[in-house]
Simulated scan of single mutants.
Amino acid sequence: MPHTSSQRPALGIMFVLIAGVFWALYIRSSAKVGALVPGASGLAVAMLVGAAFIAPVAGVVPAPQPIWNAAQDPMLLLMIFGTAMFASVIPYSAELMALRNLPQQVFSVLMSMEPAIAAIAGWALLDQETGPIRWVAICLLMTASVGITLTTTKGDSPKQKDDGEDPVPMPLPE
Rank of each mutant, 00 (worst) to 15 (best):
Q104W: 06
Q104C: 06
A137W: 06
Q104E: 12
L110A: 03
A118C: 05
Q128T: 14
E129I: 15
A121H: 03
W135H: 02
I133W: 13
A116C: 11
V136I: 12
V109G: 00
W135A: 04
P115S: 04
P132Y: 12
Q105F: 14
W123G: 00
L126M: 11
P115T: 08
I120Q: 06
V136W: 09
Q128I: 14
T130P: 03
A121F: 12
S112R: 03
R134W: 10
C139S: 14
M113E: 09
V136M: 10
R134K: 11
A137H: 02
L110G: 05
V109E: 01
M113Y: 03
W123N: 09
P115Q: 02
V136K: 00
V106A: 01
G131L: 09
Q128W: 05
A116R: 06
L126A: 12
V136Y: 06
V109Y: 01
V109M: 07
G131A: 07
V109W: 02
L110V: 03
Q105R: 13
I120H: 03
G131R: 08
S108E: 04
A116E: 09
P115R: 01
W135F: 05
A116D: 07
L110K: 00
T130F: 03
G131D: 10
A137M: 10
Q105T: 09
Q104L: 11
A119K: 02
I117Q: 04
I133P: 00
A124E: 04
A116G: 13
P132K: 12
S112H: 07
C139V: 15
E114R: 09
A124G: 08
L125E: 00
S108L: 06
F107M: 10
A137S: 12
E129V: 15
T130R: 02
Q105I: 10
V109I: 14
M113A: 13
I138M: 02
V109S: 03
S108A: 13
T130V: 15
T130W: 01
W123A: 13
I120E: 06
M113H: 01
P115C: 07
Q105C: 04
C139H: 05
Q128L: 11
F107T: 04
E114N: 12
V106C: 02
I117W: 12
R134V: 15
I120Y: 05
S108M: 09
P132Q: 12
F107N: 07
S108T: 11
L126P: 00
G122H: 04
G122E: 06
P132H: 11
L126H: 09
W135Y: 00
Q105H: 12
S112A: 15
W123C: 10
I117V: 15
C139N: 08
D127F: 10
G131M: 09
V109L: 09
C139K: 00
A118W: 02
F107H: 12
A124M: 13
I138Y: 06
W135G: 01
T130E: 02
